[in-house]
Protein backbone atom coordinates (compact mmCIF):
# COMPACT_ATOMS: atom_id res chain seq x y z
CA UNK A 1 0.00 0.00 0.00
CA UNK A 2 1.21 3.48 -0.78
CA UNK A 3 2.06 5.32 2.40
CA UNK A 4 -0.36 8.01 3.42
CA UNK A 5 1.12 11.43 3.13
CA UNK A 6 2.01 13.00 6.41
CA UNK A 7 2.58 16.58 5.58
CA UNK A 8 2.86 18.66 8.71
CA UNK A 9 -0.35 20.36 9.73
CA UNK A 10 -0.70 24.06 9.19
CA UNK A 11 1.38 25.71 6.50
CA UNK A 12 -0.10 28.17 4.08
CA UNK A 13 -0.73 25.66 1.29
CA UNK A 14 -2.86 23.46 3.42
CA UNK A 15 -4.69 26.26 5.12
CA UNK A 16 -5.57 27.68 1.72
CA UNK A 17 -6.82 24.32 0.57
CA UNK A 18 -9.11 24.04 3.58
CA UNK A 19 -10.37 27.55 3.14
CA UNK A 20 -11.19 26.94 -0.51
CA UNK A 21 -13.01 23.71 0.28
CA UNK A 22 -14.96 25.30 3.11
CA UNK A 23 -15.87 28.33 1.00
CA UNK A 24 -17.04 26.10 -1.84
CA UNK A 25 -19.29 24.03 0.36
CA UNK A 26 -20.56 27.14 2.09
CA UNK A 27 -21.46 28.69 -1.27
CA UNK A 28 -23.64 25.81 -2.43
CA UNK A 29 -26.95 26.99 -0.95
CA UNK A 30 -26.38 30.34 -2.71
CA UNK A 31 -27.05 28.59 -6.02
CA UNK A 32 -30.65 28.58 -4.88
CA UNK A 33 -31.31 24.96 -5.75
CA UNK A 34 -32.77 22.95 -2.93
CA UNK A 35 -31.56 19.71 -4.39
CA UNK A 36 -27.93 20.90 -4.41
CA UNK A 37 -28.27 21.31 -0.67
CA UNK A 38 -29.69 17.79 -0.32
CA UNK A 39 -26.83 16.34 -2.32
CA UNK A 40 -24.12 18.42 -0.67
CA UNK A 41 -25.44 17.44 2.72
CA UNK A 42 -25.18 13.78 1.81
CA UNK A 43 -21.71 14.28 0.38
CA UNK A 44 -20.59 15.82 3.67
CA UNK A 45 -22.16 13.10 5.80
CA UNK A 46 -20.87 10.22 3.70
CA UNK A 47 -17.57 12.06 3.35
CA UNK A 48 -17.18 12.19 7.11
CA UNK A 49 -18.14 8.53 7.34
CA UNK A 50 -15.59 7.65 4.66
CA UNK A 51 -12.77 9.77 6.10
CA UNK A 52 -13.41 8.17 9.49
CA UNK A 53 -13.34 4.73 7.88
CA UNK A 54 -10.10 5.64 6.18
CA UNK A 55 -8.45 6.38 9.51
CA UNK A 56 -8.79 2.65 10.07
CA UNK A 57 -8.07 1.41 6.58
CA UNK A 58 -5.82 3.96 4.90
CA UNK A 59 -3.78 4.85 7.95
CA UNK A 60 -3.83 1.80 10.22
CA UNK A 61 -4.32 -0.80 7.47
CA UNK A 62 -7.37 -2.38 9.15
CA UNK A 63 -10.01 -3.22 6.53
CA UNK A 64 -13.26 -3.21 8.47
CA UNK A 65 -16.36 -4.48 6.70
CA UNK A 66 -18.63 -3.50 9.54
CA UNK A 67 -18.45 0.27 9.83
CA UNK A 68 -22.14 0.57 8.97
CA UNK A 69 -22.90 -0.74 12.45
CA UNK A 70 -21.40 2.43 13.98
CA UNK A 71 -23.00 4.69 11.42
CA UNK A 72 -26.37 3.05 12.07
CA UNK A 73 -26.02 3.06 15.84
CA UNK A 74 -25.30 6.79 15.68
CA UNK A 75 -28.39 7.34 13.56
CA UNK A 76 -30.57 5.22 15.83
CA UNK A 77 -29.25 6.93 18.96
CA UNK A 78 -30.34 10.29 17.61
CA UNK A 79 -33.55 8.90 16.11
CA UNK A 80 -34.68 7.08 19.25
CA UNK A 81 -33.74 9.79 21.73
CA UNK A 82 -35.52 12.46 19.71
CA UNK A 83 -38.61 10.56 18.66
CA UNK A 84 -39.19 9.27 22.18
CA UNK A 85 -38.61 12.79 23.44
CA UNK A 86 -35.94 11.76 25.93
CA UNK A 87 -33.21 14.26 25.17
CA UNK A 88 -32.85 17.39 23.06
CA UNK A 89 -30.87 17.33 19.84
CA UNK A 90 -27.95 19.16 21.44
CA UNK A 91 -27.43 16.19 23.76
CA UNK A 92 -28.56 13.45 21.38
CA UNK A 93 -25.83 14.13 18.85
CA UNK A 94 -22.97 13.86 21.36
CA UNK A 95 -24.77 10.80 22.74
CA UNK A 96 -24.54 9.25 19.27
CA UNK A 97 -20.78 9.81 19.29
CA UNK A 98 -20.58 8.19 22.70
CA UNK A 99 -22.70 5.25 21.54
CA UNK A 100 -20.43 4.69 18.54
CA UNK A 101 -17.36 4.80 20.74
CA UNK A 102 -18.96 2.47 23.26
CA UNK A 103 -19.85 -0.07 20.61
CA UNK A 104 -16.28 0.02 19.33
CA UNK A 105 -14.99 -0.46 22.87
CA UNK A 106 -17.25 -3.49 23.18
CA UNK A 107 -16.51 -5.17 19.85
CA UNK A 108 -13.02 -3.80 19.24
CA UNK A 109 -11.10 -5.92 21.76
CA UNK A 110 -12.44 -9.07 20.08
CA UNK A 111 -11.76 -7.84 16.55
CA UNK A 112 -8.21 -6.56 16.99
CA UNK A 113 -6.99 -9.96 18.08
CA UNK A 114 -7.29 -10.89 14.42
CA UNK A 115 -5.62 -9.43 11.40
CA UNK A 116 -6.07 -9.37 7.65
CA UNK A 117 -9.08 -11.04 6.16
CA UNK A 118 -10.06 -12.57 9.52
CA UNK A 119 -10.39 -9.12 11.03
CA UNK A 120 -12.50 -8.10 8.05
CA UNK A 121 -14.80 -11.10 8.43
CA UNK A 122 -15.29 -10.66 12.16
CA UNK A 123 -16.19 -6.99 11.79
CA UNK A 124 -18.73 -8.09 9.19
CA UNK A 125 -20.21 -10.78 11.42
CA UNK A 126 -20.62 -8.39 14.36
CA UNK A 127 -22.11 -5.68 12.18
CA UNK A 128 -24.63 -8.12 10.74
CA UNK A 129 -25.64 -9.17 14.23
CA UNK A 130 -26.20 -5.55 15.22
CA UNK A 131 -28.22 -5.13 12.02
CA UNK A 132 -30.25 -8.26 12.85
CA UNK A 133 -31.10 -6.93 16.29
CA UNK A 134 -32.16 -3.52 14.98
CA UNK A 135 -34.13 -5.20 12.21
CA UNK A 136 -36.02 -7.51 14.57
CA UNK A 137 -36.57 -5.45 17.71
CA UNK A 138 -39.93 -3.96 16.77
CA UNK A 139 -40.77 -2.81 20.28
CA UNK A 140 -37.68 -0.63 20.53
CA UNK A 141 -36.21 0.21 17.13
CA UNK A 142 -39.34 -0.04 15.02
CA UNK A 143 -37.88 -3.06 13.23
CA UNK A 144 -37.57 -3.06 9.47
CA UNK A 145 -40.00 -0.16 9.11
CA UNK A 146 -37.47 2.13 10.71
CA UNK A 147 -38.33 5.40 12.43
CA UNK A 148 -39.98 8.32 10.69
CA UNK A 149 -40.77 11.87 11.62
CA UNK A 150 -37.73 12.42 13.84
CA UNK A 151 -38.27 15.86 15.37
CA UNK A 152 -35.32 18.23 15.13
CA UNK A 153 -35.31 21.61 16.89
CA UNK A 154 -37.11 24.40 15.00
CA UNK A 155 -33.84 26.25 14.70
CA UNK A 156 -32.53 23.50 12.43
CA UNK A 157 -35.78 22.64 10.68
CA UNK A 158 -34.92 24.43 7.46
CA UNK A 159 -32.73 22.28 5.20
CA UNK A 160 -30.34 25.15 4.50
CA UNK A 161 -29.76 25.86 8.18
CA UNK A 162 -29.28 22.21 8.88
CA UNK A 163 -26.84 22.09 6.01
CA UNK A 164 -24.69 24.82 7.56
CA UNK A 165 -24.86 23.01 10.85
CA UNK A 166 -23.66 19.81 9.13
CA UNK A 167 -20.95 21.76 7.37
CA UNK A 168 -19.65 23.17 10.65
CA UNK A 169 -19.71 19.82 12.44
CA UNK A 170 -18.16 17.92 9.56
CA UNK A 171 -15.32 20.38 9.02
CA UNK A 172 -14.62 20.53 12.72
CA UNK A 173 -14.44 16.74 12.63
CA UNK A 174 -12.13 16.83 9.63
CA UNK A 175 -9.86 19.21 11.46
CA UNK A 176 -9.81 16.95 14.52
CA UNK A 177 -9.17 13.85 12.41
CA UNK A 178 -6.37 15.65 10.55
CA UNK A 179 -4.79 16.57 13.88
CA UNK A 180 -5.04 12.95 14.97
CA UNK A 181 -3.46 11.69 11.78
CA UNK A 182 -0.61 14.18 12.01
CA UNK A 183 0.04 13.49 15.68
CA UNK A 184 2.55 10.96 17.01
CA UNK A 185 -0.46 8.67 17.47
CA UNK A 186 -1.11 8.84 13.74
CA UNK A 187 2.52 8.08 13.02
CA UNK A 188 2.31 4.96 15.16
CA UNK A 189 -0.82 3.83 13.30
CA UNK A 190 1.02 4.14 10.00
CA UNK A 191 3.97 2.22 11.29
CA UNK A 192 1.55 -0.48 12.45
CA UNK A 193 0.17 -0.62 8.93
CA UNK A 194 3.63 -1.01 7.46
CA UNK A 195 4.85 -3.56 9.97
CA UNK A 196 2.99 -4.50 13.11
CA UNK A 197 5.73 -6.79 14.47
CA UNK A 198 8.47 -4.25 14.22
CA UNK A 199 6.22 -1.63 15.80
CA UNK A 200 5.69 -4.03 18.66
CA UNK A 201 9.44 -4.43 19.07
CA UNK A 202 9.70 -0.71 19.67
CA UNK A 203 7.82 -1.28 22.89
CA UNK A 204 4.56 0.04 21.51
CA UNK A 205 1.44 -1.79 22.56
CA UNK A 206 0.06 -2.34 19.08
CA UNK A 207 -3.36 -3.56 20.17
CA UNK A 208 -4.03 -0.53 22.28
CA UNK A 209 -3.38 1.70 19.31
CA UNK A 210 -5.55 -0.44 17.08
CA UNK A 211 -8.38 -0.30 19.58
CA UNK A 212 -8.03 3.46 19.85
CA UNK A 213 -8.23 3.71 16.06
CA UNK A 214 -11.42 1.62 16.07
CA UNK A 215 -12.98 3.76 18.77
CA UNK A 216 -12.14 7.03 17.01
CA UNK A 217 -13.35 5.74 13.67
CA UNK A 218 -16.51 4.31 15.22
CA UNK A 219 -17.26 7.55 17.07
CA UNK A 220 -17.00 9.68 13.94
CA UNK A 221 -18.98 7.16 11.88
CA UNK A 222 -21.71 7.41 14.52
CA UNK A 223 -21.55 11.21 14.33
CA UNK A 224 -22.11 10.96 10.57
CA UNK A 225 -25.09 8.66 11.17
CA UNK A 226 -26.53 11.04 13.74
CA UNK A 227 -26.19 13.98 11.37
CA UNK A 228 -27.95 12.00 8.66
CA UNK A 229 -30.85 11.11 10.96
CA UNK A 230 -31.34 14.79 11.77
CA UNK A 231 -31.37 15.78 8.12
CA UNK A 232 -33.48 12.96 6.71
CA UNK A 233 -35.96 12.77 9.62
CA UNK A 234 -36.28 9.07 8.90
CA UNK A 235 -33.93 6.15 9.46
CA UNK A 236 -33.97 2.51 8.54
CA UNK A 237 -32.06 -0.72 9.27
CA UNK A 238 -30.59 -0.57 5.75
CA UNK A 239 -28.19 1.95 7.23
CA UNK A 240 -26.56 -0.89 9.17
CA UNK A 241 -26.53 -3.47 6.42
CA UNK A 242 -23.30 -4.79 4.95
CA UNK A 243 -24.07 -3.05 1.67
CA UNK A 244 -23.62 0.26 3.50
CA UNK A 245 -20.24 -0.88 4.82
CA UNK A 246 -19.37 -1.85 1.28
CA UNK A 247 -20.43 1.57 0.01
CA UNK A 248 -18.03 3.37 2.32
CA UNK A 249 -15.16 1.07 1.33
CA UNK A 250 -16.01 1.77 -2.27
CA UNK A 251 -16.00 5.54 -1.75
CA UNK A 252 -12.70 5.49 0.09
CA UNK A 253 -10.84 3.32 -2.38
CA UNK A 254 -12.23 5.10 -5.41
CA UNK A 255 -11.27 8.44 -3.94
CA UNK A 256 -7.91 7.15 -2.82
CA UNK A 257 -7.05 5.82 0.60
CA UNK A 258 -3.60 7.33 0.67
CA UNK A 259 -4.80 10.91 0.95
CA UNK A 260 -6.77 12.39 3.79
CA UNK A 261 -9.49 13.92 1.62
CA UNK A 262 -9.56 11.16 -0.99
CA UNK A 263 -12.56 9.45 0.64
CA UNK A 264 -14.53 12.70 0.65
CA UNK A 265 -13.95 13.05 -3.07
CA UNK A 266 -14.85 9.39 -3.52
CA UNK A 267 -18.15 10.01 -1.72
CA UNK A 268 -18.90 13.00 -3.95
CA UNK A 269 -18.06 11.11 -7.13
CA UNK A 270 -20.13 8.04 -6.24
CA UNK A 271 -23.15 10.01 -5.09
CA UNK A 272 -23.18 12.15 -8.22
CA UNK A 273 -22.74 9.22 -10.57
CA UNK A 274 -25.48 7.33 -8.75
CA UNK A 275 -27.88 10.23 -9.02
CA UNK A 276 -27.11 11.10 -12.64
CA UNK A 277 -27.32 7.56 -13.93
CA UNK A 278 -30.36 6.66 -11.86
CA UNK A 279 -32.19 9.48 -13.56
CA UNK A 280 -31.71 8.16 -17.06
CA UNK A 281 -31.81 4.40 -16.98
CA UNK A 282 -33.15 1.47 -15.06
CA UNK A 283 -29.95 -0.31 -16.04
CA UNK A 284 -27.85 1.76 -13.66
CA UNK A 285 -26.11 -1.30 -12.26
CA UNK A 286 -24.16 -2.03 -15.39
CA UNK A 287 -23.06 1.61 -15.65
CA UNK A 288 -21.93 1.89 -12.07
CA UNK A 289 -20.31 -1.54 -12.28
CA UNK A 290 -18.53 -0.60 -15.50
CA UNK A 291 -17.28 2.70 -14.10
CA UNK A 292 -16.06 0.97 -10.94
CA UNK A 293 -14.29 -1.63 -13.00
CA UNK A 294 -12.60 1.01 -15.14
CA UNK A 295 -11.46 2.96 -12.10
CA UNK A 296 -10.10 -0.17 -10.44
CA UNK A 297 -8.12 -1.07 -13.55
CA UNK A 298 -6.89 2.37 -14.61
CA UNK A 299 -6.60 4.29 -11.33
CA UNK A 300 -4.46 2.11 -9.09
CA UNK A 301 -4.33 4.71 -6.31
CA UNK A 302 -7.96 5.75 -6.56
CA UNK A 303 -9.14 8.75 -8.55
CA UNK A 304 -7.55 11.41 -6.37
CA UNK A 305 -4.39 9.47 -5.60
CA UNK A 306 -3.74 8.68 -9.26
CA UNK A 307 -4.51 12.18 -10.54
CA UNK A 308 -2.32 13.54 -7.77
CA UNK A 309 0.65 11.48 -8.84
CA UNK A 310 0.10 12.38 -12.51
CA UNK A 311 0.17 16.04 -11.58
CA UNK A 312 3.22 15.54 -9.39
CA UNK A 313 4.94 13.85 -12.30
CA UNK A 314 3.99 16.78 -14.51
CA UNK A 315 5.47 19.21 -12.00
CA UNK A 316 8.64 17.22 -11.74
CA UNK A 317 9.04 17.27 -15.48
CA UNK A 318 8.42 20.99 -15.52
CA UNK A 319 11.01 21.55 -12.84
CA UNK A 320 13.47 19.36 -14.71
CA UNK A 321 12.87 21.52 -17.79
CA UNK A 322 13.47 24.67 -15.73
CA UNK A 323 16.75 23.21 -14.62
CA UNK A 324 15.75 23.11 -10.95
CA UNK A 325 16.16 19.70 -9.35
CA UNK A 326 12.90 17.81 -8.89
CA UNK A 327 12.06 16.05 -5.69
Amino acid sequence: MTPARTKPAGGLGQAAQWAVALALFAAIPLAGKKFFVTMANEVLVMGLFAVAFNLLYGFAGMLSFGQAAYYGVGAYTVGLLLSKGVLPFAVALPAAVAAGAALALLLGPLCIRLSGVYFTMLTLAFAEMVWGIVFKWYGFTGGDNGIQGIPVPDLLRSPVRYYYFTLAVVFASFWLLRRIVDSPFGAVLQSIRENPERTGFLGIQVRRYELAAMVISGAFAALAGGLFAGYQHSIHPDMLHWTKSGEVILMSILGGVSSFFGPLMGAAVILFIEDMIGKYTEFWEIWIGGIMLAIVIFFPKGVIGTLDSWIARGRDRERAADGTPGS
Binding site: M1, T2, Y57, L63, G116, V117, T120, G246, I249, L250, S252, I253, L254, V257, F283, E285, I286, I288, G289, G290, M292, L293, I295, V296, I297, P300, K301
Partner: peptide
Protein backbone atom coordinates in the same frame (compact mmCIF):
# COMPACT_ATOMS: atom_id res chain seq x y z
CA UNK B 1 -4.32 -6.73 -13.76
CA UNK B 2 -4.50 -5.92 -10.08
CA UNK B 3 -2.42 -8.73 -8.58
CA UNK B 4 0.32 -7.47 -6.31
CA UNK B 5 -0.94 -3.89 -6.36
CA UNK B 6 -0.72 -1.89 -3.13
CA UNK B 7 -3.93 -2.35 -1.15
CA UNK B 8 -4.87 -5.30 -3.32
CA UNK B 9 -7.52 -6.69 -0.96
CA UNK B 10 -9.60 -3.53 -1.18
CA UNK B 11 -9.34 -3.46 -4.98
CA UNK B 12 -10.33 -7.13 -5.11
CA UNK B 13 -13.50 -6.33 -3.23
CA UNK B 14 -14.28 -3.48 -5.60
CA UNK B 15 -13.52 -5.40 -8.75
CA UNK B 16 -15.51 -8.47 -7.82
CA UNK B 17 -18.30 -6.26 -6.49
CA UNK B 18 -18.48 -4.47 -9.83
CA UNK B 19 -19.05 -7.88 -11.41
CA UNK B 20 -22.05 -8.48 -9.16
CA UNK B 21 -23.64 -5.31 -10.55
CA UNK B 22 -22.68 -6.04 -14.14
CA UNK B 23 -23.82 -9.68 -14.12
CA UNK B 24 -27.13 -8.76 -12.47
CA UNK B 25 -27.93 -6.26 -15.19
CA UNK B 26 -26.73 -8.46 -18.04
Amino acid sequence: RIYGRGGEEGFQILLTYSFILIIDDV
